[in-house]
Amino acid sequence: WVPDSEAPNCMNCQVKFTFTKRRHHCRACGKVFCGVCCNRKCKLQYLEKEARVCVVCYETIS
């Protein structure tokens, strides 16, 4: 899990986070992404309901 303080930009597209461009943690890899790069949901083994995942993890999992 990457702390918010260590991620000033999206770890995929590099967009800078602001008050309106929020950070989202991928529940699969723990990296920090913008809403566009972390907009998929899928079922993870260790969680009961679907969770937010990044586009890279989504392609790997599904």
Rank of each mutant, 00 (worst) to 15 (best):
Trp1Arg: 05
Trp1Asn: 02
Trp1Ile: 15
Trp1Gln: 15
Trp1Cys: 05
Trp1Leu: 06
Val2Pro: 00
Val2Gly: 02
Val2Gln: 03
Val2Arg: 01
Pro3Asn: 15
Pro3His: 08
Pro3Leu: 08
Pro3Lys: 13
Pro3Cys: 14
Pro3Val: 10
Asp4Met: 12
Asp4Pro: 03
Asp4Trp: 07
Asp4Leu: 08
Asp4Phe: 05
Ser5Gly: 09
Ser5Tyr: 05
Ser5Trp: 05
Glu6Ile: 12
Glu6Arg: 04
Glu6Val: 06
Glu6Gly: 09
Glu6Trp: 05
Glu6Ser: 09
Glu6Gln: 09
Glu6Tyr: 06
Ala7Ser: 08
Ala7Asp: 06
Ala7Val: 12
Ala7Thr: 03
Ala7Tyr: 05
Ala7Gly: 10
Ala7Leu: 03
Ala7Lys: 06
Ala7Ile: 02
Ala7Gln: 04
Ala7Phe: 03
Ala7Asn: 05
Pro8Glu: 14
Pro8Cys: 03
Pro8Tyr: 08
Pro8Asn: 09
Pro8Ile: 12
Pro8Leu: 14
Pro8Lys: 10
Pro8Ala: 12
Pro8Gly: 07
Pro8Val: 09
Asn9His: 05
Asn9Ala: 11
Cys10Arg: 00
Cys10Leu: 00
Cys10Asn: 01
Cys10Lys: 00
Cys10Pro: 01
Cys10Met: 00
Cys10Ala: 01
Cys10Gly: 00
Cys10Glu: 01
Met11Asn: 08
Met11Val: 15
Met11Leu: 10
Asn12Lys: 09
Asn12Ser: 09
Asn12Val: 14
Asn12Cys: 09
Asn12Ile: 12
Asn12Gly: 12
Asn12Glu: 13
Asn12Tyr: 04
Asn12Arg: 07
Cys13Asp: 02
Cys13Ser: 01
Cys13Trp: 00
Cys13Leu: 00
Cys13Phe: 00
Cys13Met: 01
Cys13Ile: 00
Cys13Asn: 01
Cys13Arg: 00
Gln14Ser: 09
Gln14Asn: 13
Gln14Gly: 09
Gln14Lys: 08
Gln14His: 13
Gln14Arg: 06
Gln14Leu: 09
Val15Arg: 07
Val15Glu: 12
Val15Cys: 09
Val15Ile: 08
Lys16Val: 11
Lys16Ser: 05
Lys16Met: 14
Lys16Ile: 07
Lys16Asn: 07
Lys16Trp: 04
Lys16Gln: 15
Phe17Gly: 03
Phe17Cys: 05
Phe17Val: 02
Phe17Ser: 02
Phe17Gln: 00
Thr18Ile: 03
Thr18Gln: 03
Thr18Asn: 12
Thr18Trp: 07
Thr18Tyr: 03
Thr18Leu: 05
Thr18Asp: 04
Thr18Ala: 03
Thr18Cys: 14
Phe19Glu: 15
Phe19Tyr: 12
Phe19Arg: 14
Phe19Ile: 13
Phe19Trp: 11
Phe19Met: 15
Phe19Gln: 13
Phe19Leu: 13
Phe19Asp: 15
Thr20His: 15
Thr20Pro: 07
Thr20Met: 15
Thr20Trp: 09
Thr20Ser: 10
Thr20Phe: 10
Thr20Cys: 08
Lys21Pro: 01
Lys21Ala: 04
Lys21Gly: 04
Lys21Met: 05
Lys21Val: 11
Lys21Asn: 13
Arg22Glu: 06
Arg22Cys: 02
Arg22His: 03
His24Thr: 04
His24Cys: 06
His24Glu: 04
His24Ala: 03
His25Asn: 05
His25Glu: 04
His25Gly: 07
His25Arg: 03
His25Val: 07
His25Met: 07
His25Cys: 05
Cys26Glu: 00
Cys26Gly: 02
Cys26Tyr: 01
Cys26Ala: 00
Cys26Asn: 02
Cys26Lys: 00
Arg27Leu: 02
Arg27Met: 04
Arg27Thr: 02
Arg27Val: 01
Ala28Gly: 06
Ala28Pro: 03
Ala28Leu: 04
Ala28Tyr: 07
Ala28Ile: 03
Ala28Gln: 10
Ala28Arg: 11
Ala28Trp: 10
Cys29Gly: 00
Cys29Glu: 00
Cys29Ser: 02
Cys29Met: 01
Cys29Ala: 01
Cys29Ile: 00
Cys29Pro: 01
Cys29Tyr: 01
Cys29Gln: 00
Gly30Ala: 05
Gly30Pro: 03
Gly30Leu: 09
Gly30Glu: 10
Gly30Tyr: 09
Lys31Met: 05
Lys31Gln: 12
Lys31Asp: 15
Lys31Pro: 02
Lys31Phe: 06
Lys31Gly: 12
Lys31Ala: 10
Val32Met: 09
Val32Cys: 08
Val32Glu: 06
Val32Trp: 03
Val32Thr: 05
Val32Pro: 03
Phe33Met: 11
Phe33Tyr: 11
Phe33Pro: 01
Phe33Leu: 12
Phe33Val: 09
Cys34Ile: 01
Cys34His: 01
Cys34Tyr: 02
Cys34Ser: 01
Cys34Trp: 01
Cys34Leu: 00
Cys34Met: 02
Cys34Pro: 03
Cys34Gly: 01
Gly35Ala: 10
Gly35Phe: 14
Gly35Trp: 10
Gly35Asp: 14
Gly35Thr: 11
Gly35Gln: 13
Gly35His: 10
Gly35Ile: 12
Val36Asn: 08
Val36Asp: 13
Val36His: 11
Val36Gln: 13
Val36Cys: 12
Val36Arg: 09
Val36Gly: 13
Cys37Thr: 00
Cys37Phe: 05
Cys37Leu: 00
Cys37His: 04
Cys37Asp: 02
Cys37Ala: 00
Cys37Val: 01
Cys38Ala: 12
Cys38Trp: 03
Cys38Pro: 01
Cys38Thr: 08
Cys38Lys: 01
Cys38Met: 04
Cys38Arg: 08
Asn39Pro: 07
Asn39Val: 05
Asn39Ser: 11
Asn39Asp: 15
Asn39Ala: 07
Arg40Tyr: 13
Arg40Met: 14
Arg40Lys: 14
Arg40Thr: 14
Arg40Ser: 14
Arg40Val: 09
Arg40Glu: 15
Lys41Trp: 15
Lys41Ala: 15
Lys41Pro: 10
Lys41Val: 12
Cys42Thr: 14
Cys42Phe: 10
Cys42Asp: 15
Cys42Gly: 13
Cys42Leu: 11
Cys42Gln: 14
Cys42Glu: 14
Cys42Trp: 12
Lys43Thr: 14
Lys43Phe: 15
Lys43Gln: 11
Lys43Asp: 15
Lys43Gly: 10
Lys43Met: 14
Lys43Ile: 08
Leu44Thr: 05
Leu44Asp: 04
Leu44Glu: 04
Leu44Cys: 05
Leu44Pro: 05
Leu44Tyr: 03
Leu44His: 06
Leu44Gln: 11
Gln45Gly: 09
Gln45Arg: 07
Gln45His: 09
Gln45Trp: 07
Gln45Val: 07
Gln45Phe: 08
Tyr46Arg: 10
Tyr46Ser: 15
Tyr46Pro: 15
Tyr46Trp: 06
Tyr46His: 13
Tyr46Ile: 10
Leu47Thr: 14
Leu47Ser: 11
Leu47Glu: 14
Leu47Phe: 05
Leu47Ala: 14
Leu47Lys: 10
Glu48Ile: 04
Lys49Gly: 12
Lys49Met: 06
Lys49Trp: 07
Lys49Ser: 10
Glu50Cys: 08
Glu50Gln: 08
Glu50Arg: 09
Glu50Leu: 10
Glu50Val: 12
Ala51Ile: 04
Ala51Asn: 09
Ala51Thr: 10
Arg52Asn: 04
Arg52Phe: 06
Arg52Thr: 10
Arg52Ile: 15
Arg52His: 04
Arg52Trp: 04
Arg52Met: 12
Arg52Ala: 05
Val53Ile: 06
Val53Leu: 06
Val53Arg: 06
Val53Thr: 12
Val53Ala: 13
Val53Met: 06
Val53Lys: 06
Cys54Gly: 02
Cys54Glu: 02
Cys54Arg: 01
Cys54Phe: 00
Cys54Asp: 02
Val55Tyr: 09
Val55Asp: 14
Val55Phe: 09
Val55Ala: 14
Val55Ile: 14
Val55Gln: 13
Val56His: 11
Val56Cys: 06
Val56Ala: 10
Val56Phe: 13
Val56Arg: 07
Val56Trp: 12
Cys57Pro: 01
Cys57Val: 00
Cys57Asn: 02
Cys57Met: 01
Cys57Gly: 01
Cys57Gln: 00
Tyr58His: 12
Tyr58Lys: 04
Tyr58Leu: 07
Tyr58Ile: 10
Tyr58Val: 10
Glu59Tyr: 06
Glu59Phe: 08
Glu59Arg: 08
Glu59Val: 08
Glu59Ala: 06
Glu59Gly: 11
Glu59Asp: 08
Glu59Cys: 09
Thr60Ile: 06
Thr60Ser: 13
Thr60Leu: 07
Thr60Tyr: 06
Ile61Asp: 15
Ile61His: 15
Ile61Leu: 08
Ser62Pro: 15
Ser62Thr: 13
Ser62Cys: 10
Ser62Glu: 02
